[in-house]
Structures are given as C-alpha cells and as structure tokens.
Design a protein around this nucleic acid. Structure first.
Lengths: 110, 110
DNA sequence: ATATCGTACAACCAAATGGTTGTAGATCAG
DNA sequence: CTGATCTACAACCATTTGGTTGTACGATAT
C-alpha cells in the first residue's frame, strides 16, 4: 500500500484535531478574533495545561499558529489545514455523486 | 456551555471516524462498490476482527450501514454522515470568509 | 452430516488521549 | 527588587484506541 504516508498521517492529525468539541470551539474563536493561550483557557472548565495541550494538537494539525507577543502567545486560525480537510470531504462527496450518476445511468438503461 | 451535546458527540464520532486512514479507505470503497466485512478484511494487513472494529466505528458515526445477506454482512456507504461533516467544515469556511471580508473592510476604511 | 465460511464477541495488551498537579522560566507592573 | 502573570513542560492517572488471539454460532457447500 503505502499510498502517500505523509499525506495520510497529515489527514489523521487533521481529523483527530477536529474530533473534540473544545478544539472545534477554539478553532472557531481564533478564526474570528485574537486570543492568547490563557485567554482561551479562561473560557473552558478545565486547567490551563489542558487547553495548552488542545492548542498544541491544533498546531500540529496546522489548524492554528502561535506567535509570541511579549509574555503572551497569540493563537490564530490557519486556513491551510481547514482547506485540506475540506478538500478531502469534497473528494468523497464527488465519489458519491459519481456513484449516484452511475446508478441513474443503469436505471435509465434498464 | 452545553451548546448541543448530542450534535457535539455526533461530530466527535464523525471526525474521529475519519481520523484513520484504513477507515477513510473503507469509506471510499464502500461508496463505490459493495463489500462484505470479510471482503474488506482481505484488503488490509490486519486481522478480520480489527477490520470488524473499524467498520463498527464507521457505523456508529453514521458513515456506513450494514445489511445482512445470507451469512455475509454487506457494508455500504451512508451519505448522511459525510454530509454532516462536510457541512461543519463549510460553516468554518464561511466564518473564515466573513473574517477575510471584515479585514478587507477595515483596510478599505483605513 | 460435516467441514468451511462469515460473523460476533470476549479477553487481553500496548500506546495514545484527555485530563490533572506541580515546578520553573520569562515578562510585566508597582 | 518583588510579586503577579503567562507560558512550558514533566509526571502522573484513567480511559479510549487499535490491534491481537480465541471461542462460538449460524449459513453454506460438498
């Protein structure tokens, strides 16, 4: 197999990152505005360290970036990752539509 | 918070299901054609039971359905789950585009 | 009738996940 | 300088995940 190992693990990380509601919320927020890690942490009923880990997961998945500003670390949304995930689902959708087309064709023949 | 707990865990399962390359491959295949569980199992370098578990994960996420036919269990793609995941990413994309619009507006003003 | 096939499911295991607390280093405010 | 704030990171813990093997049972083929 070994289709495209790099891309595959990249996608693993992307979808894994989306598979948690706290992380999805973080992505939404940092897309709209600017947040420091502690700014984000104050929003959730969990420890600072836990939020820090969530941000790290998102960063590894290329869904956010961090930039140091003074003693703060500013988290921002990164469109790149989002696009990749979206493109994959678009592919799947296309496969499905193609199949639906074939089915329709078969029905038309019969 | 408790935004919409049901939908949130549903999305957790959906993205979690996509976060594995074997499962993504299974989804592609069963969208195009028909496979029994053992038919799928023969494609991968892992045990039947492992593939059975992957299919179960996909089923829980509403990405595939199973239907008994004789002694076989036929796995088919289920469009519903795919659409839900796709819709969420579309929402995120929309949020992003909105933000880009605002940025452009600010630049125009300044 | 018997052997084989496809499935289900339990038990087990190592590694990853999602959380915690605690410690320590920068940076900023008074 | 001192104290508070923001971050990083290690250590720990319970649960989940992704895999295994083994057993059991209905459906099928010979």
């Amino acid at each position: 197999m070994v289709v495209d190992q790099l891309r595959e693990t990249e996608l693993d990380r992307l979808f894994q990152a989306f598979a948690d509601s706290t992380r999805r919320d973080i992505v939404r927020r940092v897309t709209v505005g600017e947040y420091s890690v502690s700014g984000l942490a104050s929003l959730y009923a969990m420890s600072f360290a836990a939020v820090q880990k969530h941000v790290a997961v998102l960063e590894r998945a290329s869904l956010v970036t961090k930039e140091k500003r003074g003693r703060e670390q500013i988290v921002r949304g990164n469109h790149e990752g989002l696009q990749k995930a979206r493109r994959l689902l678009d592919e799947y959708e296309a496969i499905w539509q193609e199949r639906v087309g074939r089915m329709a064709g078969i029905l038309a023949e019969g």
